[in-house]
Design a protein around this nucleic acid. Sequence first.
DNA 1: TTGTACGCGTTATCAC
DNA 2: GTGATAACGCGTACAA
Lengths: 338, 338
Amino acid sequence: MSKTPTINDVARTAGVSKKTVSRVINRSPLLKEGTREKVEAVIAELGYVPNPQARALALRRNFLVGLLYDNPNAQTVLNFQEGVLDAIRDTEFALVVRPVDRHSPTVLDDIRDFLEKQRLFGVMILPPISERDEIAEICRELKCEYVRMGSAELDSPDHMVESNDKEAVLRAIDHLVLQGHRRIGFITGPDGFRSARERYEGFLDAMANNGLDCNGELIAKGEYTFESGKRAAAELLRAKVRPTAIFASNDEMAAGALHVAEELDLHVPRDLSLFGFDDSPTAAHVWPPLTTVRWPIRAMAKAAALKLINPPGMEPQPHRFLSDLVLRSSVAPPRDEK
Amino acid sequence: MSKTPTINDVARTAGVSKKTVSRVINRSPLLKEGTREKVEAVIAELGYVPNPQARALALRRNFLVGLLYDNPNAQTVLNFQEGVLDAIRDTEFALVVRPVDRHSPTVLDDIRDFLEKQRLFGVMILPPISERDEIAEICRELKCEYVRMGSAELDSPDHMVESNDKEAVLRAIDHLVLQGHRRIGFITGPDGFRSARERYEGFLDAMANNGLDCNGELIAKGEYTFESGKRAAAELLRAKVRPTAIFASNDEMAAGALHVAEELDLHVPRDLSLFGFDDSPTAAHVWPPLTTVRWPIRAMAKAAALKLINPPGMEPQPHRFLSDLVLRSSVAPPRDEK
DNA sequence: TTGTACGCGTTATCAC
DNA sequence: GTGATAACGCGTACAA
């Protein structure tokens, strides 16, 4: 007989009732030790594994957590997945993923559909799509737990894991200033991205704090893409008096800037220092490797997942995370400061 | 009343039986048009969505497909996920992911546990972990459908989507030869990776076909990592008479080779041509951008998923895929050939 | 401490 | 064509 055994089979061969088996599985404290051992022996012998679908039905909740993302950075997403796995390992939860298209006019409907059809226990939402409040609204409507990840406080702490991008950029710019840079260029991210805004504000604050000028000539618009980084860098480097350092709002754009420097025969970091954001694999693989900012993604992911499934006896998870500066060789003191 | 409606609610308010509603949902052909319309109206009105857990229980099968991976290349994994989504979009299937650790002594048990606990309908397995036959064995045991992705024929066609890495490398080396290269170095992948072996064999065959010498001095061992690429390239470039081109078994290693060239003051591609494999984001972002080989991953993923869920009326999916050569500027004719 | 009876939301069987 | 009724595998009241 090759059919997979059910709780009934276990109960029958152990000579107890279903309910008793159920109690063993769910570690009910009120059970005679002898019974428990006997049942456990039978479970092992039969190779019984509870059916999660049946459990889900009876409990009127399931054990799937979702990951909603629309993120250009593959490494970020995968690291997040790993972090979630850290949290749900040895639980009955599984992770279902759902990439969405930010630019589709039907994203919201797609998401609603997904959540409704799958009846997920909860979802984690990655930036930039996490910035849309309508999604949180949908979750609430559908009674689906949610945790958003973002660069700023978008929601109440129990629904957020946040990095503090503004603070990170502040520290990054301070680092450049400490190295002696005074003319620091900035490549923004796209409009409508909260992370882009936070990073930009961090830049403005840092420049102001340090008493440095930052006129329009030092700021160029980017779109978080490699190509836009090239365009923006070319624009910044066209100035009569060039910046000695450029902070790009992500690594892709910093890599683009690197290409432009190469084309202009500017040596990085001797003639131009470059600072990125994200610590993507690209950052480590370009030449010279990029100094950049790293989110503690895996830790954030784990916290997000724990917040979601909230296992008993678990202290509340932090919702705020600080980024690290990853110092590599694309930043050095400026050659000659007038 | 905010409870989500069930099939019973629909049946009651539509004045029909549960079974009829079920028939409407499952598009049974034997239904009077009037009844169908009436029921559909009620479904829309109530906003009824079938409960997948209950369905899964009744049908004794669920609608989850898994993705098992242990892949160093994030972009590959994510592209695969997207491809799978292309296939399951508008079906009731969802994708659950499961990164595993190839080096853990308990991988196989972990995988078995995962499949057993979640009762997946099927799984797709990415290389390199897909190369382990024991996993296929476990799937068969647990009656879990599976499709493996790999660089060679590891299983029967209905359980495989394959790239032909040997063929791809053959074409890549031919391309180098056509450009005039004669001394071509090769950086291998790690032992035990089927992809590494295929690529290596492709190299040997290509060199033989072209009547070129390929002694040990032209071959260096790598581990698919950036650092190992640096080591291997340094070794190759230490030769009295240097290769004019190096084929690295993946992009990470090619990027490492690029760093070494930079350190040795060798200009790429003038003094040294570099060929990678994978078309990872890194390949496009380093300077100069890398000529490389690209798997049609997304198409492969879609085929894999369709093979798995095998929707009715779907012609059989191809199991064999050809890779493309992505020509960028890291390859050029050698400067001077003696 | 353990068992009985029933419900969870769906599909399948087999009558009508 | 349609509808009772019984599964599917597990959890919970409530009783014993």
